[in-house]
Design a protein around this nucleic acid. Structure first.
Length: 839
RNA sequence: GGGCUGGUGGCGGAAUUGGUAGACGCGACAGACUUAAAAUCUGUUGAUCGCAAGAUCGUGGGGGUUCGAGUCCCCCCCUGCCCACCA
């Protein structure tokens, strides 16, 4: 019996595949059946791959190989999302140019990914930092600019004082910078913005036809945040000003007892009375000093100040006071609200605190003495709306307002325009010049790519300008329009830019004349299956859909959506072990002989195990290189798939991989000793099991149930391995089914069996439905809902046969003595349930 | 506070539309092989009672619907993730 050296097999087969260019996709699909299977490409960090990366890559690899064996032309590429802060921060700290670090990291990532034997077409590799690539990122920016979708604006942006750059709303979490956790400040800066809001409705509507996880669709919907309501104008008493508010509850207009403006609202100064001026000023200052996080804390007590002004309710002419309060946000709606304390929780809390009126306008059992009522009900105290329900009165009041001219139906979105510029070096230069005479002038397309110039210092200036601003010979240029002196834009694009459209470039990555050849795009687009982490549910996936729609409008792509099917891999966690003193211990220090109570080898201390995220401080980080060295690529791949459901977060268990590794070793040594002959005939049950396994594995791959697919393969092998001599078909079917999960070892066995072909070019096995019906199955027999016996019959038995078999059981007959059978329920293939009562 | 997940043996996890709970793997125990150990192979392994046949209990807790509930309904507890004053 040969002992497999998996590392050697991995290397040998990978070299064979590479030499044969086995994974290269044709320029155009030849078969008429194409499958584009895409992984979210990684940021090549200095730490190298972690075990989470290969989880998604293995899944996409299995799907790709499966589709290929089913006769598809499969496009399965890989590349690098290589602009970004870590390389730049590293440059600031060490002076090493980001290009050098990035190249080194890419080489390391490529080496690691190749070591897993992934079926990528490496000729299609892309790198977002290559001028050949970012030429087209810049080209898309120019198209956005021409369509009026890119504009400059001086906006109070989220400013990270540590990264010294502006951040998009999407990059701010709990008022802190997503990357460095520093609390965000507000800073006014000139920024490039992308008008993603112009596409809000389409981004929302087109979610409809996507095969995406429901939770991701939900998050996108919430992020776009469509809300239908009305805008209503309130006159300010004794002034010319009008306050416009947005409300989703125009039906409660008769219940409006005060108004609130955001502290930053432009009308505040104009309407504030002299007596209130000091208080208002003080409050505005206070609000400005608070950071986003403090202001957004919904739990805190409401604060606010009366402006001294009154507005007039346009329905009944009633005077209501105008306040300012920071629970009203500038960025949403109109930055002003009509407050209906009876039917809004926040308004209620505010009114209670400041002793403002509460007028009930919707009837409810509970009333509004204790808290606001936000449900549906009948309108009261509302003149011509009385007696209507909420929906009906909304329509009626909007119609009335439109007739009278003080309000109208209005849809708002939570989605904001995208702050698209960064004050950074390591990003795509924005292809714009600022001319003294002509103003903003886009570069002609012929001047692309606009290359990133060399700099000596990578620090952002901290004043809001990027390091590029210091390179005068680059900044100073001539205007492409008038030829006069001009300055280049020194902002660069955010990291998201390159990943917005990369799936298109893989299709045609060497094209010098177009982003992608339209013929090729038509043939390969859209992405049929997209795999990556759920953390991109609203960032990358929304931006990318936005750009795709713009490209669709330009005729560059032929589908409305870029990614037809999307699946997320779960996060891989790890067991960590902590002793009573709170110190973490590495796996090497732990004696696992008693798993219920692992002991430290060193001192025998009692440990508690926890499932946590991998982190150095918890000493539970798993390095893929180490695993590969010990177990080989196939065991790694198969274990990652076997651990648990693909989309669930699950812990890496150092002992768990042993099982899969043993399985593969057994497969190898069994095949090594095996006699494959034409005459060998396996028992019928084994033959049926083969067909069952083909069905199960095929269906499981389609549904991303890789864990149960591996399990089915183990079950089949446990049976098959009892035989030293098998027929050719059984042997080959098993190898083919296992191949996507463990490509190296199966290819090795295939080759050892005398084949010079590759398994990937073999056809995926099919199964015989009729044969499955001949299986002998065991069904349960219940009496009054309790299982009392089990009987065997063939899978195609009819109901009568089920009943006969159940009543034929001696045990059942004994139990039924002295009982009257009231009813017999037969579920074919599952069970027979007998309802009986004592006679 | 809101939304979305999930809660099944010592552990990771299986279980179409309600239909034999615990597949598969790990670990553990016993045995074989070995001078010995590792590796490998074979068997056992939800709990309780029992010599056994077998019985009873059992999917976070409590109720309900049903011949039958991990799965459906109501109430409650807990975990994880996301969002967080969105008018």
């Amino acid at each position: 019996m040969a002992i497999a050296n998996f590392q050697e097999i991995d290397k040998k087969q990978q070299e064979r595949w590479e030499k044969a260019k086995l994974f290269s996709a044709p320029r155009l699909p030849k078969t008429g059946k194409k499958f584009y299977c895409l992984d979210m490409f990684p940021y090549p960090s200095g730490q190298g791959l972690h075990v989470g990366h290969p989880e998604g890559y293995t899944a996409s690899d299995i799907v790709s190989r499966y589709k290929r064996m089913n006769g598809y032309d499969v496009l399965h590429p890989m590349g690098w999302d290589a602009f970004g802060l870590p390389a730049e921060n590293y440059a600031i700290a060490t002076g090493v140019h980001p290009r050098i670090t990035t190249q080194k990291n890419i080489d390391n990532f490529r080496r690691q990914i190749k070591s897993f034997g992934m079926a990528y077409d490496w000729d299609r590799e892309i790198d977002t930092t290559s001028p050949d690539y970012y030429k087209w990122t810049q080209w898309i920016f120019l198209q956005l600019y021409k369509k009026g979708l890119a504009y400059q604006s001086t906006v109070p942006i989220n400013w990270c004082p540590s990264c010294k750059t502006g951040l998009a709303n999407e990059e701010v979490f709990n008022g802190r910078c997503e990357r460095c956790q520093t609390p965000i400040e507000k800073k006014n800066l000139r920024q490039w913005m992308l008008k993603i809001t112009a596409y809000a409705e389409r981004l929302l509507e087109d979610l409809e036809g996507l095969d995406w996880p429901a939770s991701t669709l939900m998050m996108q919907r919430n992020w776009i945040g469509k809300s239908e309501g009305a805008e209503v104008d309130f006159k300010v008493e004794g002034k010319a000003e009008t306050i416009r508010v947005f409300t989703t509850r125009p039906d409660t207009l008769f219940g409006a007892t005060y108004m609130v403006l955001a502290p930053e609202h432009e009308l505040v100064e104009k309407i504030t009375s002299p007596e209130q001026k000091a208080a208002v000023e003080a409050y505005r200052k206070e609000a400005a000093a608070k950071n986003e996080f403090e202001r957004a804390d919904a739990e805190k007590e409401k604060t606010g100040v009366f402006t001294g002004a009154y507005a007039v309710n346009p329905l009944n002419g009633k005077k209501i006071p105008v306040w300012i309060a920071d629970y009203v946000l500038t960025g949403y709606g109109t930055g002003a609200i009509m407050a209906v304390p009876a039917h809004d929780d926040r308004d209620y809390a505010f009114a209670k605190k400041f002793g403002l009126d509460i007028i009930e306008v919707i009837k409810s059992e509970q009333g509004v003495a204790e808290k606001a009522f936000t449900g549906d009900g009948e309108l009261i105290n509302s003149d011509f709306l009385n007696g209507m329900r909420v929906a009906q009165s909304k329509a009626a009041i909007i119609k009335y307002m439109q007739e009278k001219g003080f309000g109208k139906a209005k849809t708002t979105y939570r989605l904001r325009d995208w702050v698209f510029s960064r004050q950074r070096y390591w990003g795509e230069p924005i292809p714009i010049v600022h001319c003294e005479k002509c103003g903003v002038v886009p570069l002609p397309e012929s001047e692309l790519p606009l290359r990133l110039p060399e700099v000596e210092k990578f620090e952002p200036s901290g004043t809001g300008e990027s390091p590029l601003a210091n390179i005068t010979e680059w900044v100073n240029t001539t205007c492409p329009h008038c030829g006069g002196p001009a300055k280049r834009e020194t902002n660069t694009m955010p990291q998201w830019a390159g990943s917005c459209w990369y799936y298109l470039r893989y299709m045609d990555n060497k094209n010098q004349n177009a982003l992608v050849d339209p013929e090729i795009e038509k043939a390969y687009g859209p992405v049929d299956c997209y795999i990556g982490g759920a953390e991109h549910a609203v960032l990358h996936l929304l931006y990318s859909r936005f750009w795709h729609k713009v490209l669709y409008d330009l005729g560059v792509v032929h589908t409305k959506e870029p990614y037809a099917k999307l699946r997320h891999q779960g996060m891989i966690l790890a067991f960590s072990y902590r002793d009573e003193a709170g110190n973490y211990h590495t796996y090497e220090e732990i004696d696992f002989s008693d798993p219920a109570n692992p002991k430290l080898k060193a001192n025998g201390a009692k440990l508690t195990s926890m499932i946590e995220k991998m982190s150095k401080s918890k000493k539970n980080v798993i390095n893929p290189d180490d695993i590969l060295k010990e177990y080989g690529a196939d065991a790694f791949r198969a274990y990652e798939m076997f651990m648990g459901p693909f989309d669930a977060s699950k812990p890496w268990d150092m002992r768990g991989i042993e099982g899969v590794s043993r399985f593969l070793k057994r497969v190898y040594s069994w095949a090594d000793d095996l006699k494959v002959s034409k005459d060998a005939k396996l028992p019928k049950e084994v033959e049926i099991l083969k067909h069952k396994t083909v069905k199960k594995v095929s269906e499981d791959i389609e549904s991303f149930s890789f864990n149960t697919a591996v399990s089915a393969l183990m079950i089949y092998f446990n049976e098959l391995s009892k035989y030293k001599e098998v027929d050719e078909n059984s042997f080959e079917v098993f190898l083919k089914l296992l191949h996507p999960f463990a490509p190296h070892i199966t290819e090795e066995i295939w080759q050892n069996a005398g084949h010079e072909t590759f398994l990937l070019n073999e056809r995926w096995p099919s199964y015989n439905k009729e044969l499955l019906l001949e299986e002998q199955i065991e069904i349960g027999v219940q009496i009054n809902g309790k299982i009392k016996d089990r009987v065997k019959l063939s899978a195609d038995s009819d109901k009568a046969a089920h009943e006969k078999a159940a009543l034929g059981s001696e045990k059942i007959q004994n139990l039924l003595k002295g009982q009257n059978i009231i009813k017999i329920i037969v579920v074919p293939g599952k069970m027979v349930s007998i309802v009986a009562r004592p006679s």
